[in-house]
Amino acid sequence: MLTEEELIQQCLENDKWALEQLYKQFAPKMFGVCLRYAKNRMEAEDILQEGFIKVINNLHSFRSKGSFEGWMRRTMVNTAINHYKKNLRHAREMDIEEVEVENNSELKVLDKISTDELMAMIQQLPEGYKVIFNLNVIEGYTHKMIGQMLGISENTSKSQLLRAKRLLKDKIKNYGTHGAE
């Protein structure tokens, strides 16, 4: 079994077998990341493909100091953000109604729903909200960093995150209600 370092080395030598192994090893995790940023599965596939080619082309710039998976994940996230920015002008802006959180009923529902179902709800979020939600809640980026990445102010990032959470909670609650029926 090759170590991660050896595998990367072989990939750098353009060994097709090693590239396939790298893909097999990391594609499922990265596909999970892509799905969260995409509108649907097809878009996620596009992001994965684009991101993986970026990873292969920039493999030489990877410094073995940090985690390779982390580096690859960042590349995927950046690809997804670029994808979002590219499609931004075509994105349909949605009017978001303010959803007041009255209780924490969504937490109970959240335990019951599967990851795929949760993923579907996140995917349904408006583009901007979805990206900020993913970057902050899942990836752990600060609002300052998100602001820099997306070219928006820190406050915009904060307010959009708040709205994203409210919307997602609403969806989860609705799911709970729908499921209860």
């Binding site: 594609a27 499922p28 995790k29 596909f31 999970g32 799905l35 990851t115």
Partner: peptide, 9 residues
Amino acid sequence: KFDGYQPTP
């Protein structure tokens, strides 16, 4: 929920 989520592409 997303920890270890690895859908097969």
